[in-house]
Design a binder for these strands. Sequence first.
DNA 1: ATGCTTATGAGAACCATTCACAACTGTAAA
DNA 2: TTTACAGTTGTGAATGGTTCTCATAAGCAT
Lengths: 142, 142
Amino acid sequence: MMAGESDRTEKMTAALRKAGIRVTRQRIALLGVLAEADDHPDAVELHDRAKRIEPTVSLATVYRTLSVLEESGVVHRHSFKGGGARFETSHEEHHDHILDVDTGEVIEFQSDKIERLQDEIARELGYEVVHHRLELYCRKKR
Amino acid sequence: MMAGESDRTEKMTAALRKAGIRVTRQRIALLGVLAEADDHPDAVELHDRAKRIEPTVSLATVYRTLSVLEESGVVHRHSFKGGGARFETSHEEHHDHILDVDTGEVIEFQSDKIERLQDEIARELGYEVVHHRLELYCRKKR
DNA sequence: ATGCTTATGAGAACCATTCACAACTGTAAA
DNA sequence: TTTACAGTTGTGAATGGTTCTCATAAGCAT
């Protein structure tokens, strides 16, 4: 037999099946792409990358699968200003984003203080935070 | 002669002209609508309201004018989750938004602490904040 | 009032995303 | 391993919000 498939693929396969989601070639390809992406690609970019692994993937399936993965908490969808949604795997801990307005670069950051303040503010107004969106559109200091 | 036009209209007219923007019936209508809106209407809603004042306003003009007004800092455009952009006049002081995920209601809040924290975080990473987006998607506490 | 320039309405065009549907394919059971 | 069924897929059309095109209309400085 030829060299076995990677551990990663096996793990993803198992994870999918456990979630009751059918394991298809297209989904394996997309999950592979997401797993090694360390940027914040949009659906078209993910489609391009996935096609290199599994040429039959259609854009519609990319969108469909991303929605499925979002619902099951595997990926996060971000809608930054300008252009379409961008995605990232959610296995890291929660963070917010700085967007470099000049370069388009995305930087992640995390602040417990801000998280706490948000909860506090909501609480004072009689609400509890379900989720939030915090984006800092910034310019490099010189 | 008939009773003169309202002060408000005269003021808006003057403000527009000063900005080098031509004063048209459509723009007067839209500005009037924006001035008395205390909610966060979208373009279609603004169009409907403006038509009651000036029936000839087209949706395209509403969008065009909103862009003009946004560029000149008169209105702010918000893109909350789900649905199109929503607008509000910017003559009040800066604030962020709580979105009630059940009712869709928009509540405004302001926190100097959070503003300061944001600046601090950006500064530590070598950036300065140009503008930001902070939305708390909340549910009423019971 | 005149002329130049900007604004407008109508509808087409756009773009990201979703949908409809017939063909296909995992998966579990036989 | 074959079968059978429900979940998935690719294609292309549809959608919804927003912008564009272009011929016509109308501000505004003179």
